[in-house]
Design a protein around this nucleic acid. Structure first.
Lengths: 261, 261
DNA sequence: AAGTGGTCTAGACCACGTG
DNA sequence: ACGTGGTCTAGACCACTTT
C-alpha cells in the first residue's frame, strides 16, 4: 500500500514537473500542441493523401505521453477533417474536399472528374416499396403509395464517401429499375422519360452516421457526417424524387448558386 | 509493489466480470448504452431545453463507471447535437434546430420568430478595412480595395448561435456603417441604397470553431460547427457582399429552395 | 469554498485487420 | 500471430464558475 501511494505521489510529482515545464514554454494543452505539430506535418506533405499516420502507440511514445492524449489530438484532427480513421486499420490523411452542388444531379461523376478526382457509383439495392408514412405525408403523396427505392454508394478516388437513398415516383418513370443505375440518374430519367426537375428543395445539416451507413462507408458508428436531402418536383408540383445523402463530413464542400425568386 | 500488482489484477478481473456480465445482456459498448439511456431520457423530456444534465461525476457513479466513459457518452451525444456544453458549467440539452435559408437575408429575426423562436442580433465591430488579398482575387476586386467589415453575433432564444463576418462593397452603400446594424442588413441596404442581390453563391461545410469564434459563442475551441459563406452580386455581376457565418453545428438545418438555371 | 468540466497518467483487455 | 485501434479503469491536478 505504501509503495502504491508512493508511486502515485511520484506520478503526481512528475506530472506537476512536466506540466510546469511545458507551461513555461507554452501554456496550451498538450494534445493541442501535438495536434499543431501533426497538422504542420500534414500541411508540409510529410504524408501523402490517404497515407497512414504512425500508430497511436508510436505517437504517444514520440510525444512522451499516453495513448489517451495522443488519441485526443487525433480525434481533434479528425473533427477538423484533416485526418480520418478506417475501422481498426489506423489514421489516414484526408484528401481535399470536393465541391458538390446538390441542386444538380446531372453527371456527378463528370462533375467530380472536372475537379481532378475520379468518381464511381455502385448500386447496392433497388426495389419497389411502399413509401413510409411520414415521408408520404411530407411530400404530399397518399400513404402506401408504391415508390422505387434505390440505394447507392459513391466513391471518390476509390474512397467510399457517401451513401444515398433515393425514392422515385414510379408514376413518372415506370420500369426504371430495369436500367443500370450506376450512372447519372437524372441523365437516365431525361433520356428515357424526358423527366426534368423544376423545383428543388434542399435540407443540409451535420449529423452523425448511424451504424449501417457508417459500416457501408468503412467508418465508425457515430462518426460525424453531413446529411443532405433533396426533394424534386416537376412543373406541376408533382413529386418526382426524394434523395437522402449521407456523406463523410470531410469529403465535401457544398456549393450552390441561386438566383432570386 | 506486490500490492500494486495485486490491485491491478483485481481490477482486470472485475473488468472481465463486468464486461462478461454486460455482454451477456447486450454486447454494445458501455458508453453507447449510456448514450442510449440518456438519449431516451432526453427524448422523454426528463430535462427541458437548455437544462443542465447531472454532473459527469454523478453520471459516472450512476452508471457505475468512470468519468472517462461517462464523458465518452456525453461527447457522442454532443456530436449528434442532442446536448451541448458551455465552458466549465456543464452539459445542457440542445433546443431544436431552426431552419435557415442562407440564400435570403431578408429578416433573419422575423424568419426565426416565424418558427416560434426569439432572435437577436448584436454588432460586435464595424470598420473600414482593406480587403484581404486572397478574397479580393476570388471575388474579382482589385487588391487593397477598401471594404466595410462588420462583425455580428446572433442569438436564438438568448443562446449565441453564430458569428458572422460581412464584407460590403462601399461603392454601392457609402456610409452604411453610420446606421444601426443590429437589424436586417438587406432590408437596410434595400431601403437606403435600393440594393438588391441578384446572384448568390453559397458554400457550406462542417468545420471546427477556432478559438476567437468559439469563445464568442461560449463554446470550446475545436467544437464542431457549420461554416456558411455567401457571395452576393448585383445584376451587373458587381461584388456586393461576402458573408461568412460560423454556426454551432447543432443550431440549424440549412434549407434552400432552388429553381433550375 | 465547493463544484464543474478540461486535461492527463499508466496501465489493462478486447475485437478486428493484416500479414 | 501480431499489430492496430476501441474501450475501459481508477485515480490525479488544474482552471474556471457558481454558491
Amino acid at each position: 500500500m505504501l509503495l502504491c501511494e508512493n508511486s502515485i505521489v511520484k506520478q503526481s510529482l512528475t506530472n506537476v514537473l512536466r506540466v510546469n515545464q511545458l507551461r513555461s514554454v507554452e501554456k496550451r494543452a498538450l494534445y493541442l500542441r501535438i495536434r499543431d505539430y501533426l497538422a504542420a506535418d500534414i500541411a508540409a506533405g510529410k504524408w501523402a493523401e490517404n497515407e497512414k499516420l504512425p500508430s497511436e502507440r508510436q505517437l504517444s511514445e514520440q510525444f512522451n505521453t499516453t495513448r489517451v492524449t495522443a488519441r485526443q489530438a487525433l480525434t481533434q484532427l479528425e473533427a477538423e477533417g484533416l485526418i480520418f480513421r478506417s475501422n481498426r486499420r489506423g489514421w489516414f490523411v484526408t484528401p481535399p474536399r470536393i465541391n458538390y452542388d446538390p441542386s444538380r444531379d446531372m453527371g456527378f461523376v463528370r462533375y467530380v472528374e472536372d475537379q481532378g478526382f475520379s468518381a464511381r457509383t455502385q448500386t447496392l439495392e433497388k426495389k419497389l416499396i411502399e413509401l413510409p408514412d411520414h415521408i408520404a405525408d411530407e411530400v404530399g403523396l397518399d400513404r402506401g403509395t408504391p415508390v422505387y427505392e434505390i440505394l447507392r454508394r459513391r466513391y471518390i478516388n476509390d474512397r467510399p464517401c457517401l451513401i444515398e437513398k433515393i425514392f422515385l415516383n414510379p408514376k413518372h418513370c415506370p420500369g426504371v429499375l430495369q436500367h443500370s443505375l450506376d450512372r447519372s440518374l437524372w441523365s437516365l430519367l431525361k433520356a428515357e422519360y424526358d423527366l426534368v426537375p423544376v423545383e428543388r428543395h434542399l435540407e443540409i445539416y451535420p449529423q452523425t452516421l448511424e451504424q449501417p451507413i457508417a459500416e457501408a462507408l468503412d467508418a465508425n458508428t457515430g462518426t460525424s457526417g453531413l446529411y443532405i436531402r433533396r426533394i424534386c418536383r416537376d412543373q406541376n408540383g408533382d413529386f418526382l424524387e426524394l434523395d437522402e445523402e449521407f456523406w463523410l463530413h470531410n469529403a465535401l464542400k457544398v456549393v450552390v448558386s441561386v438566383m432570386p425568386d
